[in-house]
Write a protein that binds this DNA or RNA. Sequence first.
RNA 1: GGUCACGUGGCCGAGGGGCUAGGCAGAGGUCUGCAAAACCUCGUACAGCGGUUCGACUCCGCUCGUGACCUCCA
Length: 494
Amino acid sequence: MSASSPGPFFLTNTLTRRKEEFKPLRPPHVGLYVCGPTVYSDVHLGNVRSFLTFDVLYRWLTQLGYKVRYVRNITDVGHLVDDVDHGEDKIAKRARLEQLEPMEIVQKYTNGFHDVMRLFNILPPSIEPTATGHLIEQIEMVKRILASGYGYEANGSVYFDVPSFAEKHPYGELSGRKIDELLTNTRDTEGMDEKRSPLDFAIWKKAEPQHLMKWPSPWGEGFPGWHLECSAMSTKYLGQTFDIHGGGMDLKFPHHECEIAQSVAADGQAPVRYWMHGNMLTVNGRKMAKSEGNGFTPEELLTGNHKLLEKGYSAMTVRFFMLQCHYASTLDFSNAAMQASEKGLERLMKAMTLLPKLKASDADEADIAALEQRCHAAMNDDLNTPVMIAELFEAVRIINSVNDGKLNLTTTSIEKLHGLMHTMVHEVLGLRAEAADAKGEDNALDALVGECIRLRVEAKGRKDFATSDAIRDRLAAIGIILKDTKEGTTWERA
RNA sequence: GGUCACGUGGCCGAGGGGCUAGGCAGAGGUCUGCAAAACCUCGUACAGCGGUUCGACUCCGCUCGUGACCUCCA
């Protein structure tokens, strides 16, 4: 951590619906659990936004000096496609369609997921457990829930008894539901269910003979319930009570609510101290979702090969675009907004490249320490990246002004500014320079453009502006932009 | 239908009872042979109607609009 005190960190706890100061259970350690992807299809941009939110949280906690154990699971089994009874495992369904082994599907989309995470510079978690790798832990948890009296077996499946649990414990606290309201609003009209109450949920599900992914258990062949893996794995790696649990808004109910109930039933304590929920990415005002068919994959995004995209956008542009909005607000994707972010990011990154070249003077005409304070304050205020970015643009102004010789900074201040920008832009926001400005790698091209520039300088010397402009225009036509400065002419790619 | 959010200037998006958000686009200016870049200046926006208040875009109520969850979903 830098010398200046980062101050207390506040985050919105969705359990209490309030902004609270974050105090870890066992400092300096922090336990963080985030719901990962279900690996049965390509991740889309909406998924990326969620993982990005918690990536920034992870980065900021690390920056604050905490030792974070960050657990993000891979769901490779268990979620059903249809309604309960005739449900089919999503992964099994996909496997049949593609004539592949279920684990082949899992591997394929897990690899794809990791590629996407790398593309967007989203850091890997400390532990990335899979549901299939923790069958024993899940079965043990089912046993503990049965022992507590809040589970019951029916026809080879085990269900969580929500109404009886709710008599003794709060249920619906996280999502603001009330048992009786839930009951009146249930659409489930079928009476043939083996569940005692429509609110009950499966913690172990009996597998039909044709079911591909199944494991032996005390209740017969089956597979774990939808919500169980997160409870089992977070308990295993972070303990019965841990600091922060994150996920998308849409997981609040029932998924996270069920996690709380399971943990309380199995181990007698609330599992999570701070719940955090990221909001949705929307397209034309609607949630981006697989089921809506309005998502695009990173590949489509990069190439622009999608009906919703006017052109391609880089991963860093998207990352920056998302960070310009607070994680708890919905964010609407649009081409105009993307193009605005593309330009803004370009200006920010260009200023970054100027930092090492700044010339120092004796006077100090900007307060870098105050700027740093404001950056910290923004992040400490519930990860307010949009405000932090606004401060960064103040820094951009300072950098450009110093570069133009219009503003003075001492060596100390320049170094401080350099450090601050590096930390905030690269380490906290996770923005990295993109391949586009690797132009210097091609020495031949550099020499070639250099020759053109020299020819143009000669023409200018003769006041032959027709020739000098022609050189500039023709280079521009092939994507080489010339810029005249006091120190001479520079070039860059369009 | 139930629950909960949100509605900010041309666009995207912060904010918070009185004090500049920021980005992009646009207008004017400085610099430049001309451009580009950079820098400076500018628009006085907070869905509507009431209420609380010395004062509300910010608090409360209602209306309208949009969305999320209630079923797998980041």
